[in-house]
Amino acid sequence: MRIGALAARTGVSVRALRYYEEQDLLTSRRSPSGQRHYPDGAVDRVELIQELYAAGLSSRSILELLPCVVDGEATPELLDRLSTERDRIDGQIGDLVSARDRLDTVITAATANLRTGRHCKNPEG
């Protein structure tokens, strides 16, 4: 599949796909005219790269972790690294849950105040 088709199927820009190649996260073969052609598995790989970026990993970290994530090949050091990344993500999830719970408390209190006719003052005005 050509780069435009991969971009359309994954929702990732052509520019980002080129960047993934520059970072050795994604590979393509070139046609005689220089067009990139990706294997069928490229869609899954791009989606995985996007998930790892969304989790806060750098391209360097993703490159180091991809062999283990994709092929199940791991050294003890790589498994430690994966565990560290998972723990960091768990911490982020905990922080997000706490923020959501705080917002729920504020929303509940504000809703109750609206029902009783009390309103929060806008701090900007």
Rank of each mutant, 00 (worst) to 15 (best):
R2Q: 14
I3R: 01
I3G: 01
I3W: 01
G4D: 03
L6K: 13
A7G: 04
R9N: 15
T10Q: 04
G11N: 09
G11T: 07
G11L: 06
V12E: 02
S13F: 01
S13H: 10
S13M: 08
V14A: 03
R15S: 09
R15G: 11
R15Q: 12
A16I: 12
L17C: 12
L17D: 01
E21Y: 06
E21P: 04
E22K: 10
E22Q: 14
E22V: 04
E22R: 12
E22D: 13
Q23V: 04
Q23Y: 01
D24Q: 01
D24N: 08
L26Q: 06
S28C: 05
R29S: 09
S31V: 09
P32M: 10
P32H: 02
S33T: 00
G34F: 15
G34S: 15
Q35S: 09
R36L: 08
R36N: 08
H37W: 14
Y38S: 07
Y38C: 00
D40I: 15
G41K: 08
A42K: 01
V43W: 12
V43F: 12
R45V: 00
V46N: 00
I49V: 10
I49S: 07
E51V: 10
E51P: 06
L52H: 08
A54F: 15
A54K: 04
L57F: 13
S58E: 10
S59L: 02
R60T: 13
R60C: 00
S61M: 05
S61K: 08
S61Q: 08
I62C: 00
L63M: 01
L63S: 03
L63D: 05
E64D: 07
E64W: 04
E64P: 03
P67R: 02
P67N: 01
P67I: 08
C68L: 09
C68H: 06
V69A: 02
V69D: 10
D71G: 06
D71S: 11
G72N: 01
G72R: 12
G72C: 03
E73T: 09
A74K: 10
P76E: 02
P76S: 04
E77D: 06
E77T: 13
L78N: 09
L79K: 15
L79H: 00
L79E: 00
L79I: 02
D80H: 12
R81K: 07
S83K: 02
S83Q: 04
T84F: 15
R86Y: 15
R86W: 15
D87A: 04
R88G: 08
R88V: 03
Q92I: 09
Q92M: 06
I93C: 09
G94A: 04
D95V: 09
L96R: 13
L96V: 12
S98N: 03
S98D: 05
S98H: 14
R100C: 10
R100G: 11
D101S: 07
D101Y: 03
R102Y: 14
T105K: 08
I107S: 05
I107V: 11
T108V: 11
A110R: 00
T111Q: 11
T111K: 14
A112F: 02
N113K: 11
N113H: 05
L114M: 08
L114C: 11
L114H: 13
L114Y: 15
R115D: 11
R115Q: 13
T116R: 15
G117W: 03
R118D: 01
H119I: 12
H119K: 15
C120R: 07
N122Q: 03
N122T: 14
P123M: 07
E124N: 14
G125L: 03
G125V: 13
G125C: 00
